[in-house]
């Protein structure tokens, strides 16, 4: 009754909503990048700020800004 009609939601809406938020990006290789999502494009190329690189659950590196080529991306998850 009180439910409003849900506007059409797409994956892009989700991606647009998490820009500027902390995210977790997993690559096909299993490496995980955590950082603040600066922006992304249609190829799922990603620019991350305050990036942390995790391999096998261990912190391997910290980068300021990092560019990730989209074809390597397995998923993007909103962290926290």
């Amino acid at each position: 009754m009180a439910d409003t009609v849900q506007p059409k939601k797409t994956p892009s809406d989700f991606l647009g909503a998490i820009i500027g938020h902390p995210v977790l990006v997993k690559l096909n290789s299993g490496i995980i990048y955590k950082g603040v999502l600066a922006c992304l494009d249609g190829y799922m190329n990603i620019a991350l700020e305050q990036t942390e690189e995790y391999a096998n659950g261990q912190l391997k590196n910290k980068y300021g800004d990092a560019f990730i080529r989209g074809n390597n991306v397995l998923y993007i998850s909103a962290a926290e």
Binding site: K62, Y63, A66, R69, N72
Partner: peptide, 19 residues
């Protein structure tokens, strides 16, 4: 060749700052 690229960044100290 572009398809080999996974990640790119500037390893300088300036880039530890925000965009």
């Amino acid at each position: 060749r572009g398809d080999g690229v996974i990640l790119g960044l500037i390893p300088s100290i300036l880039y530890t700052a925000p965009l």
